[in-house]
Design a binder for these strands. Structure first.
Length: 438
RNA sequence: GCCCCGAUAGUAUAGUCCGGCCCAGAAUGCUGGCCUGUCGAGCCAGCGACCCGGGUUCAAAUCCCGGUCGGGGCGCCA
């Protein structure tokens, strides 16, 4: 018995039509003489109504056996009925039991009892059956679709850059070592350097969707050891402003897509999406020190700001510009990696941008240094090995246009968009310092 | 890596401060029964738990130490 319809495809207008649905028994409400079997598939729920005396006794016996999370296929006739959920129900002619789960299940799918996140992640496959959890990933899929729609329209080409790298060259976060035959390789912490190489190869406008890894034992609601990013890189830019324009449109497009195509999921999650206006506000160093000081936060001139500052600035922007988004530009060069471009006229600052959304950093990016001599200079300034980075710098000798890009965290964006309290909610199978299973 | 907090049935919790009244309580789930329009169905009956190791004490879910696991804050960052 194959499925002919998802539950969402069955409407009151289909009255009298014979259909086959398949899925899991979400709940059984047994009133004695009438039994309501709520069937769930990935699209939603459908009530199957079995009345004693109306349907054959044999079928009633099968219905009596059903428990939560049985996998069943049901052939029946659609009936329009105002008192049924969404105005329609299915009167069964055949019920096939495909799989009988052991009982009781470790976590209940349909119960409203709260379940701790850690327990939910232990039983993630069952947890994902809950409509409010499923909704997060339907929306995440649409976010990425929105990104890709936009990038495709703008002429960006999808590429794949390596996840295994030969040297932990970027500095900053810790990397995971991997046994690679008789060598040590590392999982990339960002597809950054390879993206740059692809752009100067001549592909010009590219993006990469993929994972990055951080070997940081971070115990926070916003960090994962493995996360995915939408990483965009483009050549022939005027300056970092071009990158910001791409990024804000990318984000806005994804939000529009979700708002238009996920109304039911947004309703389940009780989220209302307001499409932000562009361009996003931009705050710059060193002006940022002054703003922070207004709020009683003293950061030494030329130093990086901290987490608290991020939240303060978000509040400031929200009040002044009514925006949940803003860019931070012109970070101090000394806290940024060697490849970022300094402002030539004032080289203490870098053309380096972060995008902050509801007080959380969504992405880092900016304009990269494309002049070979400058790159070499900056590597020396950072005290890094020229030899170790030769695999990268080499190619800047042979003609490189001005370019830039960013990597936007997909889980973080999902989390902030849906007001989730923990990034693990926005990850199918999160990898955190203590969790590697399932 | 540093700091703070927590762990009780399948789940989520009460009880812990102030040891005995707790062979641990209500919910949800599960099992069985009743019920012909439920939609978090309802009603009745039953099942099921103190993270691990050590210590203090006449007595430990409760106090102390260690371990494991988890949550949060900072740092780092997407």
């Amino acid at each position: 018995m194959l499925r002919t319809h998802y539950t969402s495809q069955i409407r009151p207008e289909d009255e009298g039509k014979e259909v086959v649905v398949a899925g899991w028994v979400h709940r059984v409400r047994d009133l004695g003489g009438v039994k309501f079997i709520i069937l769930r598939d990935r699209e939603g729920l459908l009530q199957i109504t079995a009345k004693r005396g109306v349907i054959p006794q044999e079928l009633m016996n099968i219905a009596d056996e059903l428990r939560e999370e049985y996998v069943i296929a049901v052939k029946g006739i659609v009936k329009a009925n105002r008192i049924a959920p969404k105005g329609r129900e299915l009167i069964p002619n055949e019920i096939e039991i495909i799989s009988r789960p052991i009982s009781p299940l470790p976590i209940s799918i349909s119960s409203k009892t709260d379940i701790g996140l850690d327990t939910r992640l232990d039983y993630r496959v069952l947890d994902l059956r809950r409509p409010e959890v499923l909704a997060v990933f339907k929306i995440q899929s649409k976010i990425v679709e929105g990104f890709e729609d936009y990038l495709r329209e703008k002429g960006f080409q999808k590429v794949f850059t390596p996840c295994l790298i030969g040297a932990a060259s970027e500095g900053g976060a810790e990397v995971f070592p991997v046994v690679y035959f008789n060598k040590t390789a590392f999982l990339r912490q960002d597809p950054q350097l390879h993206r740059q190489l692809v752009v100067i190869s001549g592909m010009d406008k590219i993006y990469d969707l993929g994972p990055s890894w951080r070997a940081e034992p971070s115990h926070t609601p916003r960090h994962l050891c493995e996360h995915r990013g939408c990483a965009v890189e483009m050549g022939f830019i005027n300056d970092e402003q071009d990158i910001m324009r791409i990024e804000e449109n990318l984000v806005t497009r994804a939000m529009l897509k979700v708002k238009e195509e996920c109304s039911e999921e947004l309703e389940i999650l009780e989220v209302n999406i307001e499409i932000p206006s562009t361009p996003f506000p931009e705050l710059r160093f060193p002006k940022i020190y002054e703003i922070l000081e207004e709020f009683g936060k003293k950061i030494p001139f030329g130093e990086d700001y901290d987490r608290e500052s991020e939240v303060i600035l978000a509040k400031y922007v929200k009040e002044k510009y009514k925006s949940d988004f803003f860019f931070v530009n012109r970070f101090p060069f000394k806290i940024k990696p060697f490849y970022v471009m300094k402002v030539d006229e004032d080289p203490q600052w870098a053309r380096s941008i972060d995008l902050i959304y509801k007080g959380l950093e969504l992405s880092s990016g900016g304009q990269r240094e494309h002049r070979y001599e400058k790159i070499v200079e900056q590597i020396k300034e950072k005290g890094m090995s020229l030899i170790g980075l030769q695999w990268f710098t080499e190619f800047f000798k042979y003609g490189a246009p001005p370019h830039g890009g960013f990597n936007l965290g997909i889980e973080r964006f999902t989390m902030q968009l849906l007001n989730l309290s923990n990034i693990r909610e926005a990850t199918l199978f999160p990898r955190t310092p203590e969790r590697l299973l399932p």
